[in-house]
Design a protein around this nucleic acid. Structure first.
Length: 867
DNA sequence: CGGATCGAC
DNA sequence: CTATGTCGATCCG
């Protein structure tokens, strides 16, 4: 929607809030002027929760700016000069890599939804209209825009701006249909064109233009659509038979290109009674042809931009809308001229916040952006300032990258206040159901579930949990989301959790490689019976706890993971604890719900595979149709052996308790120190193997993060980073094949997973695949040495594991106060708002409470399993 | 990794 | 009468 980005500016614009005022309000006779619009919006907004939240957000941005300005103060001339040199070196490189050989077109339908509605209902034609609802508008027609009515503006405010406004409800099916029609046309010019939503698309017409040069005229001739004798079409064709479509023919530029009118002896296209038109071979002509065909087919107009890259094309299409087009010729100077005085806000990727931050530095136009490049490189992240540099040089993608694999999928919904636990949970389930359907459509499974909540004060919170298995089914997602939701409900108890929006997201998708691998590994794991390292304590826990990553904190899990696990364990404990600690009405309610929901999950979680496997506890063959059943069997086995183990375990608690305390202490201070200290501490306890392994896994994580975050936004960026991220084999190294990880998830973590990752180091180039005789997993290695190392670690681990197994089990299973305490603290840090500043003082109470909760919880879940 | 934030539409 | 969206990506700690 051409209007949308503007709206983001103006819709919330109370005077105090919005410095940038309203954009291009062409205050027509019946329109409103900027001042008036702002005043009305302000009056309608002020005092509302929404507005107050906007103010708050605004202040946060101001604080960020303040911080930045302080940073700026500290920059010395010396630093600046140095930065200047470095940046200018990059500028040279970028300049050299500038590519002007492509022709990119950006097509943008004018006021799309509104235009469709007007087309289908002529009564609306001369009226100001908007599409959407009283709560929110999606777009408005140009008439309504004169009154300041914009997309993303709530309808009731729009009504105040423009009392005669007609609000038409959304009709997506219709828009989709029209969009399809448009796309059919676009595909003829670039079969790989990239749609951006329903009303926009990028085309790379470089090839088309080459071919087009040799096209005979009749391939560029289009007849006017006269069959369809709607009112509109009649009007569109004037007496002489020429086009008269909303400025199409009346636009002198459309046919101004003499060379393109080969069949027109008089040089005037509208001279005859011809009911066809011939387009030339230039880029402009081709794009006019596209727009012409779109209008003929749909009766809707489009605007277009033609430029050497996508960024420029997009900005071009904005220039002459509606129903216009604009071209930047493929010359460096033309590009720079276009960029020069362009306000940075027009640049795709620069939004409200970035605009304001840059404005604080005195940067409003792109040339100013260029002038301040050295300073920017010192104040902003690498990714940010590099993209600024691209912008100020007019660089952008020259080919349309087929959008890479998606990284997350989510669904969310706004509604009138919900505050009862039942409603919250059932809503949550519904969202999970929807999301699961969407995921299944694309065959995706993810490991991280995020719950998003917006309370009635418009404050947004997200809470995420990463599980060892990847989830995709409704119940799998819900199992995790429910826990997160429960924690939030409990965190505000005894007050109800009053929210106006809830969302569920799944991210952390498996790569195709991983998907394949997981299939194999399941069987090998179950058969081998060798891998006994899943924590015993899982037996008494609820399913979602088994699924959560905290189960990974077995003897050989990385410390990283242990920390996280502790944190999460604690989260769970706290939540169940509070819900069971029946002081609050609300808490009781939510926990009751919890049980009910959890049992539903158990019943419903089914899969259709029927496999024979060997139970790793009793070593008997089991046939089962679902992982849940398998899991249950194993849990039963474990529960059986649990009793006799308990005695032995208690004595080990002491040492483990120390570790946990230490963790909790460190968590308050410095993470790195903490890592070191723990490493030291454990090194003395015969766990050195795990130690080195962990640090290695850690560094792998860091590398990965770095690379991902450094991946430039725009494709044609030179430099190795791009290549690295695209390189499949490296990606594999980062996500090495994992033996049995994915499906054994239900049993807890597999130790050798970590080894696999760490031995598959980042440097690995050429892979040969060997099968480890200990863990049975395939190992990609560059050298025998690294393979040997893997085997060593595997062997070691087995030993260490035996030595430490009980220890670890008790760490998770026992009800000692120590493990709980760890959680309490770290959780307090996570859930910052209410708990900040509580530090240790609050711990004692939560400790005993959570002890109780935990035992109750265990009991409950065991019962549940046998239902 | 988890949470907040940004930007697009 | 009320009433301000949905999604994915990225940054920061």
């Amino acid at each position: 929607m051409d209007s949308m980005k503007n709206v983001a500016n103006s819709s919330y614009s109370g005077g105090a809030l919005l410095r940038m005022g309203l954009n291009d309000n062409k205050a027509g006779m019946q329109g409103l002027d900027k001042e008036k619009i702002n005043k009305i919006i302000m009056e309608a907004s002020k005092g509302s929760k929404f507005y107050e939240n906007e103010l708050k957000k605004d202040q946060q941005v101001n604080q960020r700016i303040e911080k930045m300005m302080k940073l700026k103060e500290k920059i010395t001339q010396q630093q600046l000069l140095k930065a200047q040199l470095q940046v200018d070196k990059l500028v040279m490189e970028l300049e050299q890599s500038r590519n002007l050989n492509c022709t990119i077109v950006h097509i943008d339908m004018d006021a799309f939804y509104a235009a469709v509605e007007m087309r289908d209902n002529p009564e609306l034609k001369e009226k100001p209209i908007a599409v959407g609802s009283m709560s929110m508008l999606s777009t408005s027609n140009y008439h309504a825009r004169r009154f300041g009515v914009r997309a993303a503006m709530p309808g009731f405010i729009a009504k105040k701006l423009c009392p005669h406004l007609t609000i038409v409800p959304l009709n997506f099916e219709k828009y989709r249909k029209v969009s399809r029609e448009v796309k059919e046309i676009l595909a003829e010019y670039d079969p790989h064109f990239m749609p951006m939503g329903l009303d926009e698309a990028y085309l790379n017409v470089t090839e088309h233009l080459e071919e087009r040069l040799n096209w005979p005229e009749d391939k560029r001739r289009y007849f006017l659509n006269t069959e369809d004798t709607t009112e509109k079409n009649k009007e569109d064709i004037n007496i002489s038979g020429t086009l008269n479509m909303d400025g199409f023919s009346s636009s002198p530029e459309l046919f101004e290109d003499g060379t393109s009118v080969e069949d027109d002896p008089s040089g005037q296209r509208d001279q005859s009674l011809k009911n066809f038109v011939v387009f030339g071979t230039s880029a402009e002509e081709a794009v006019k042809e596209i727009r012409f065909r779109i209008e003929q087919k749909t009766q809707l107009t489009a605007s277009a931009g033609i430029a050497p890259n996508t960024m420029l094309a997009k900005m071009c299409s904005d220039r002459n809308k509606p129903n216009g087009q604009c071209r930047i010729p493929p010359e460096r100077q033309a590009v720079l001229d276009f960029i020069k005085d362009l306000p940075i806000r027009k640049v795709p990727g620069i939004g409200k916040v970035t605009e304001k931050m840059l404005k604080a530095l005195g940067i409003v136009t792109c040339s100013e952006l260029y002038q301040q490049r050295a300073l920017l490189s010192l104040l902003f992240s690498e990714a940010s300032w590099r993209s600024f540099l691209d912008i100020s040089l007019g660089l952008g993608s020259t080919h349309l990258e087929k959008d890479g694999e998606r990284k997350s999928m989510s669904t969310e919904r706004t509604f009138s206040e919900i505050n009862t636990a039942e409603d919250l949970y059932s809503l949550c389930r519904e969202l999970c159901r929807e999301l699961a359907q969407d995921l299944q459509k694309e065959g995706l499974k993810g490991k991280t579930v995020t719950l998003k909540l917006k309370n009635v004060n418009f404050e947004v919170k997200t809470r995420a949990s990463t599980v060892l298995s990847s989830v995709s089914a409704e119940d799998e997602i819900f199992a995790v989301a429910k826990t997160l939701l429960g924690t939030e409900i409990d965190s505000v108890a005894p007050h109800p959790l009053r929210i106006r929006l809830m969302g569920v997201r799944v991210s952390g998708f498996l790569s195709d490689e991983e998907k394949k691998y997981q299939q194999k590994s399941i069987k090998s794991f179950l058969k081998s019976g060798k891998e006994l390292d899943f924590p015993r304590l899982q037996s008494g826990k609820s399913i979602q706890e088994n699924l959560t990553k905290n189960s990974e904190a077995s003897s050989s899990g990385s410390f990283f993971d242990k920390k996280r696990a502790a944190r999460q364990l604690n989260c769970n404990n706290l939540s169940s604890n509070e819900s069971v600690g029946k002081q609050h009405f609300h808490g009781v309610k939510s926990s009751a719900n919890f049980v009910e929901e959890a049992s539903k999950v158990t019943d419903l979680q089914k899969s259709n595979v029927c496999e024979i496997f060997t139970c790793p506890v009793c070593f008997e063959e089991q046939s089962s149709s679902s992982l849940v059943e398998i899991n249950r069997h194993v849990d039963e086995c474990l529960a059986g052996s649990l009793v006799k183990d308990t005695v032995e375990m208690t004595k080990n608690d002491i040492s483990r308790g120390n570790t946990c305390n230490f963790l909790s202490h460190c968590k308050n201070e410095n993470t790195d120190d903490c890592k070191e200290n723990i490493t030291d501490q454990l090194a003395g306890t015969g766990q050195s193997a795990s130690t080195s392994e962990n640090s290695s896994a850690n560094s792998r994580d860091e590398k990965f993060t770095k690379i991902v975050s450094e991946k430039p936004h725009r494709e044609e960026q030179p430099g190795e980073l791009v290549d690295i991220t695209r390189n499949a084999s490296i990606k594999q190294c980062l996500f090495p094949k994992r033996n049995s990880q994915e499906t054994s998830e239900q049993f807890g973590s597999m130790d050798h997973t970590e080894e696999t990752s760490s031995s598959c180091s980042f440097e690995t180039k050429e892979d040969s695949v060997l099968v480890c005789p200990v863990c049975n997993s395939e190992q990609k290695t560059t050298s025998l040495m690294s393979f040997n190392r893997h085997v060593d670690v595997c062997l070691n681990k087995g030993l260490i594991q035996e030595l430490t197994e009980k220890d670890d089990c008790s760490a998770k299973n026992s009800d000692t106060g120590n493990s709980i305490r760890v959680g309490g603290l770290s959780r307090g840090q996570q859930c910052t708002k209410p708990l900040q500043g509580m530090k240790r003082s609050g711990l004692t109470t939560s400790q005993s409470a959570s002890k109780k909760a935990k035992s109750i919880n265990s009991k409950r879940t065991i019962e549940m399993f046998f239902k």
